[in-house]
């Protein structure tokens, strides 16, 4: 909302207007520069995912595809096509070999598992994290501080050392190689609770006090008053949680690693990458990277408008 004020406030003199323009230009330059730095690597990732293996090695810089897809192997002999025929300067002849290899695997199943897993965990976390975050931010109850410290503490544990103990617990509970086993241990996370707590603390107390005067209890206040105005925070939590689980490797590996039917995209692609010992099959690897990243990009793109919604809600709630 700072933006609004900058636009509307201030009896501007000529000099300050010039200063403002200058600042805006500076900000814009900064922004564009950073956006470029962040985007360029992905341009090359996408371009190289459409190449044959020899072409990636011969000309990784080439990023302009020329017309028509090509086969990477001579159909008669089965041997690879030479790089000199595939890439030249900034242009290259695109191929789908990387994507075909990925798709030939159990891709739909992995994709479905990734979706189920990420959505289930995200929904559960939205509930558990925001409830806990609210309690820690606003409700005074014995153990409040202690619990906050414990939650903060769990963030500080180096994850690698928990691999074996977690595996033992899940084995005791009979949850290995099940969907529940994958979802329950991740149904709440310290990062999310901490995030929500900090957000709730930045909301002025007056809103709840007003509700309390009206006789609403904590549950009503939380669901009716507080939750609707925290859309930006919930959006952020949704995105972080979904993204984290979409890319989660270690937990998935340990809990369902031995049952390929429960593998997620990350795990399946990691297995593809394992092929060939020292050598990374770049076109397959990059095609896999594009396929796993794309859904996340779409989700982020479609969710991000909710970042602005919180403001209008808060305007209403204040009346």
């Amino acid at each position: 909302m700072a933006a609004t004020t900058i636009e509307t406030v201030g009896q501007t003199s000529g000099a300050s207007r010039l200063l403002r323009r200058l600042l805006a230009a500076l900000g814009m330059t900064f922004l564009i520069l950073f956006a470029l730095v962040e985007i360029v690597p992905f341009v090359f990732t996408i371009a190289n995912s459409f190449k044959c293996l020899p072409a990636i090695n011969a000309g990784p810089w080439a990023f302009i595809p020329t017309s028509g897809f090509v086969e990477c192997r001579d159909p008669a002999t089965g041997s690879a096509i030479a790089a000199s025929e595939l890439t030249n300067g900034t242009t290259f002849r695109p191929s789908l070999e990387g994507y075909q290899t990925v798709v030939a695997e159990n891709l739909p199943r992995w994709f479905l598992n990734s979706v189920i897993f990420a959505i289930a965990i995200t929904i559960l976390r939205l509930i558990t994290d925001s409830l806990a975050g609210y309690a820690l931010a606003r409700i005074k109850f014995p153990g409040n501080r202690l619990i906050f410290f414990i939650i903060l503490g769990t963030l500080m544990i180096p994850g690698v050392v928990l691999i074996i103990p977690r595996f033992l617990i899940l084995k005791q509970l009979g949850l290995l190689n099940t969907y529940q086993g994958l979802i329950i241990p991740l149904a709440a996370d310290a990062f999310g609770i901490f995030l929500m707590k900090q957000f709730f603390e930045s909301i002025p107390k007056e809103l709840e006090e007003a509700a309390e005067v009206d006789g609403a209890n904590r549950f009503v206040t939380f669901f009716r008053i507080i939750l609707p105005i925290t859309t930006p925070a919930l959006t952020a939590l949704t995105i972080f949680s979904f993204q984290g689980q979409w890319n989660n490797f270690l937990d998935v590996l340990i809990i369902v690693g031995t049952d390929p039917n429960l593998w997620t995209l990350t795990l399946g692609l990691a297995n593809l990458q394992g092929a060939g010992g020292e050598t990374l099959i770049w076109n397959v690897f990059l095609a896999g990277a594009v396929i796993t990243t794309l859904p996340m990009a779409i989700i982020f793109f479609s969710f991000q408008r909710y970042f602005v919604e919180g403001v209008s809600y808060s305007g209403l709630a204040g009346q």
């Binding site: 409830l131 409700i139 005074k140 109850f141 414990i150 928990l162 329950i184 709440a188 609770i193 209890n217």
Partner: peptide, 21 residues
């Protein structure tokens, strides 16, 4: 209210982070 709100999260964190610790 406080304990009910933090309950679900604490069960998960204690079970799968604190005990392993």
């Amino acid at each position: 209210a406080g304990w009910t709100f933090v309950g679900p999260a604490m069960i998960v964190l204690v079970g799968f982070l604190i005990i392993p610790l």
